[in-house]
């Protein structure tokens, strides 16, 4: 690799952080949805969390809390991973596979027939 090309290529830690934090946000949404189905108390907790900041949260019910957990999971993990990975060069394909698996699991967790199979 030439020196010029090496200078252009940045460390890819920021990309890994962005990718994995998006996956964590999505996974947080799916897991909070599963928790809300487990008990009435969890569902009420989701609503209370949503009501703290989302306008009209009462109208959309526990969904507001699930959105909140998605944002918390997404932004907090991005902040942490940003500082952890910013100066690192990582094997991005491993992070890509992790991203795909996380999104795949999240998709199954919000698909009602799959949850019925787990009951």
């Amino acid at each position: 690799m030439t020196e010029e090309r090496q200078a252009i290529i940045k460390k890819n830690g920021h990309a890994a952080a962005a990718m994995i934090s998006a996956m964590i946000g999505i996974l947080s949404l799916a897991v909070s949805h599963v928790f809300s189905l487990l008990s009435k108390e969890s569902s009420n907790l989701m609503l209370e969390v949503g009501k703290t900041w989302i306008p009209g949260a009462e109208g959309i019910g526990p969904y507001s809390g699930k959105e909140t957990f998605m944002l918390i999971g997404w932004f907090s993990s991005w902040l942490i991973l940003y500082f952890v990975l910013r100066n690192r060069d990582v094997k991005l394909s491993h992070y890509g596979i992790t991203f795909m698996i996380g999104v795949g699991i999240s998709t199954l967790l919000v698909w009602a027939p799959f949850l019925d199979l787990l009951k």
Binding site: I8, I9, K10, N12, H14, A15, A18, M19, S21, A22, M23, G25, I26, L29, A30, H33, Y63, K66, E67, M70, W74, V103, S106, T107, V110, W111, A112
Partner: peptide
């Protein structure tokens, strides 16, 4: 509908993360 309301939310983190990478690494 339950599936749609959740899967629609997936678009935001994925789109923002992809956009961030495109701008952050625009030269490389």
């Amino acid at each position: 509908f339950e599936f749609k309301e959740f899967i629609a939310l997936f678009t935001l983190p994925i789109a923002v993360a992809a956009t961030f990478i495109l701008w952050k690494y625009k030269d490389s």
